[in-house]
Design a protein around this nucleic acid. Structure first.
Length: 763
DNA sequence: GAGGGGGACTCAGAAATATACCA
DNA sequence: GTGGTATATTTCTGAGTCCCCCT
């Protein structure tokens, strides 16, 4: 893989360099007055920016050293990153295949017309065949080995004169008929589910902007009101007992419940909490409680821990009760009727009050998230639907009927003043349609991406600084899948950036680094305060432009001072309808997935190997998109456990080898007891055969887990960006059951892709 | 017409919960 | 079969993007 990439990358760089010949700083300066234009107001339009004075923007900001930067990824992961970046440029060779909705509908209609086969019947047949294939696929070595094991056991028992019965230890074993019946029931349930599925992708779409014609729901569910602490749980201030008012006590409980968390050690969190807590206190309480450090929440904390522990140790019955209650709640509030179809609601519960958990160094972390009342909630539903009833004694803020939006209820939260929505689940029509649309736009980009690249390459030499900045930003978005980088209000959120909001301090230029020319080193905090660290060789023209953009600027100044996301997207719109910076992320993730799957998968591999390849392909996408997570707390322990398992197997293997040798000898020596000797021989041989295979499995597991340690879940990646039809196509081509790659929720979510994708689909 | 603000949506990581696996 | 642990899945909600409307 590496060789092809390197060579293609070299070619690319050389080709670009030859294009760049003759392009230099002097020529650029002659084209536009850069020294003047550097002081241009950031938001000026591209056309009239030259020479204007920069105002207010690019004020030097303190580099926030305390931000929770993630550790540098491992060196091999960095290599993988580079590899993945190069992948982005490699285009697949196959012809485009377009999902043809009309053809699909026609196909189904044909099936419907076929004699002796209704639509439902044909779907049933199709499903049955599919399931039979999958079942056969799932009958692997494991089951064969189980059978073999049971045979050995049976032989042993018979040898010992013990009876082999269906009942052992008095436990009822399912009869063959019962097993068959359970199987049939499962299949039937699956079929019914499939038949009930709303195949919205086969229906006509509504006119532009209309999201639904009928919407009915029960309104959101509200968390229970606060219950006072039991009398034996006390709060102390400066060693003295203080009985808090209900409002102050509730907020104190929020804090006490978080005492285990790092948040409560952060100064900003503590200050914000204390300030908001005091707002909930009575005058008397305010007079007494003046210093958070003197507050003793230990009894509340202890009570909370005990509650958590008790919940963990609930008996079966209690657990079932809780489960049933949740199910009831879901049935009652978790579904709505949208255009005569029952659709699951994604978040029907109103967010409970608590302390705001802003990420990184969010300036508002620790502030009180107030309890939402029905009076804060706007309900959206059909006029002719049954209007949801507010909880007793309350009323809604407003009931409206707006079928141009997809939300069912909304409210404004108090911390950031943002709107929150109750929306449908990911497997709903409304979400699915959007998803489908997203991939269609990304596919459309494929057909014109080369033109766009040619255009921004040319723009790198533009006389206008703004256009050059736009070209460099686009180059990064395309090559590195950076996010657009909207402007944010200073002091309102954590100091994170995207492409357009990069500052001088976020990049370092290296004319030469580790044997590569024109290397740009990125180091900034992106979305969710996830660190983006990358060293990327770029084209000479890009490098020179960056050098120019950074001249006479302070570290805290904007790198692209004449560009913002609105300008960038406006330009992208002019190149292709519906194109925005975000589309490049989807596009490049899809291309990378397809390319990686093509390179890594081998039709001759076994199923675990194919799954590993699929995970590797997804990992490449995760690296490209810089999807990271904190390493799981149990990571080190679980790796040690796996290593212990391998060691154990090694011992087992050497023992089994000795046993096998002995058993062979015994079989020769004791011809009279051949059966017993054979049983032992079989057993030892099986262990000898099995151990290396198991050890290999554990090694693969370790490899997979190490690589995944700081990356988001692989299937998650495939769901977010990578093209669903691509993954579906690959599974079918490689004869890997979709169940092995995606869980039920995920399969439900992109049922449209599963249904529409043929095995020859190409992104 | 520009641009600022906010509404509506997607994306994404952490936490909670369920399930699988193993001794 | 049981209990403990690891892993997978789901839920929750914060953090982005993008577009439209108002001034």
């Amino acid at each position: 893989m590496g060789d092809t990439q390197t060579s293609s990358k070299d070619k690319e760089v050389k080709a670009k360099e030859s294009k760049d010949k003759g392009f230099g700083k002097e020529e650029f300066r002659a084209g536009g007055d850069v020294s003047k234009s550097k002081k241009v107001q950031r938001n000026s339009t591209l056309g009239n920016t030259e020479g204007a004075e920069k105002e207010g923007k690019g004020i030097s900001r303190k580099k926030k050293e305390k931000l929770t930067k993630r550790e540098n990824p491992d060196a091999d992961l960095e290599d993988f990153v580079r590899a993945a970046q190069i992948q982005v440029k490699v285009e697949p060779e196959e012809e485009d295949f377009c999902i043809n909705k009309k053809d699909k509908v026609k196909k189904r209609l044909r099936e419907q017309e076929e004699p002796g086969g209704s639509l439902l019947e044909s779907a049933k047949k199709k499903k049955k065949v599919k399931m039979e294939v999958e079942e056969a696929e799932q009958e692997p070595e494991k089951q064969r080995k189980k059978k073999k094991e049971s045979k050995v056991k049976k032989a042993k028992k018979e040898q010992e004169g013990r009876p082999v019965s269906a009942r052992e230890g008095g436990k009822h074993k399912k009869s063959k008929e019962e097993v068959e019946a359970a199987k049939a029931l499962k299949i039937k349930k699956k079929e019914e589910e499939e038949l009930q599925r709303w195949r919205w992708w086969e229906e006509e779409k509504y006119e532009d902007g209309i999201k639904w014609k009928f919407l009915e729901h029960r309104g959101p569910w509200f968390p229970a009101e606060y219950q006072r602490l039991p009398d034996n749980v006390k709060f102390y201030y400066d060693g003295k007992l203080v009985t808090l008012s209900s409002a102050a006590e509730e907020v104190a409980v929020f804090f006490a419940q978080m005492l285990d968390h790092e948040y409560t050690t952060k100064e900003v969190f503590r200050n914000n909490f204390f300030s908001d807590w005091r707002k909930e206190m009575t005058l008397e309480e305010k007079m007494i409680i003046t210093d958070l450090n003197k507050c003793d929440f230990s009894e509340i904390y202890k009570m909370h821990k005990e509650k958590v522990e008790a919940r963990k140790n609930q008996g079966k019955e209690e657990k079932q009760k809780t489960k049933d209650a949740n199910q009831k709640l879901l049935e009652e509030y978790g579904y709505c009727t949208l255009d005569h179809h029952r659709e699951r609601i994604g978040n029907f519960k109103i967010e409970p009050p608590g302390l705001f958990r802003g990420r990184g160094d969010h300036p508002k972390q620790g502030m009180l998230k107030k309890r939402i009342q029905p009076e804060d909630v706007i309900i959206n539903c059909s006029k002719d639907s049954k209007i949801p009833q507010p909880p007793l004694g309350h009323q809604w803020k407003e009931v409206r009927c707006d079928n141009t939006v997809t939300w069912l209820a909304s409210w404004t939260e108090n911390v950031q003043g943002l709107c929150k929505y109750v929306m449908l689940n990911a497997n709903s029509k409304l979400k699915g349609e959007k998803d489908w649309e997203k991939y269609e736009i990304a596919r459309k980009l494929k057909s014109c991406v080369e033109t766009i690249r040619t255009q921004y390459q040319a723009d790198l030499k533009s006389k206008q600084m703004g256009i050059r900045q736009r070209a460099v930003a686009l180059y990064f978005i395309d090559k590195l899948a950076l996010r657009a980088g909207n402007e944010k209000e200073e002091g309102e959120t954590a100091d994170t950036v995207g492409c357009c909001s990069l500052r001088v301090e976020h990049i370092s230029l290296h004319p030469e680094l580790d044997g590569e020319k024109y290397v740009v080193e990125f180091d900034f905090l992106g979305k969710d305060c996830i660190r983006y660290y990358n060293k990327v060789p770029v084209e000479k023209a890009v490098f020179k432009n960056l050098k120019l953009f950074m001249e006479d600027k302070q570290p805290g100044d904007d790198l692209f001072d004449r560009l913002n996301t609105a300008m960038l997207n406006k330009h992208l719109h002019s190149l292709m309808a519906g194109l925005t910076a975000k589309v490049f992320r989807t596009y490049n993730a899809s291309i990378t997935l397809q390319q990686q799957l093509k390179e890594l998968t081998n039709a001759l591999d076994n199923i675990p190997e194919k799954i590993l390849s699929y995970n590797r392909a997804n990992r490449a996408v995760a690296i490209l998109c810089n999807h990271q997570r904190a390493p799981p707390k149990t990571f080190e322990q679980s790796m040690a456990n796996l290593q212990a398992k391998i060691d154990n197997r090694k011992e087992q293997l050497s023992l089994a080898k000795k046993e096998l040798k002995q058993a062979k000898k015994d079989a020769k020596d004791h011809a009279d007891d051949k059966l017993l000797a054979n049983v032992f021989m079989l057993h030892a041989k099986e262990t000898v055969d099995k151990c290396p295979w198991k050890m290999n499995c554990i090694s693969l597991q370790m490899l997979n887990r190490t690589a995944n340690c700081q990356l988001t879940s692989c299937s998650c990646m495939a769901l977010l960006y990578s093209n669903r039809p691509t993954a579906v196509r690959e599974c079918r081509k490689m004869e890997v059951s979709l169940e092995k790659i995606y869980n039920k929720t995920q399969r439900d979510k992109f049922a449209w892709a599963i249904d529409m994708t043929e095995s020859d689909f190409v992104f």
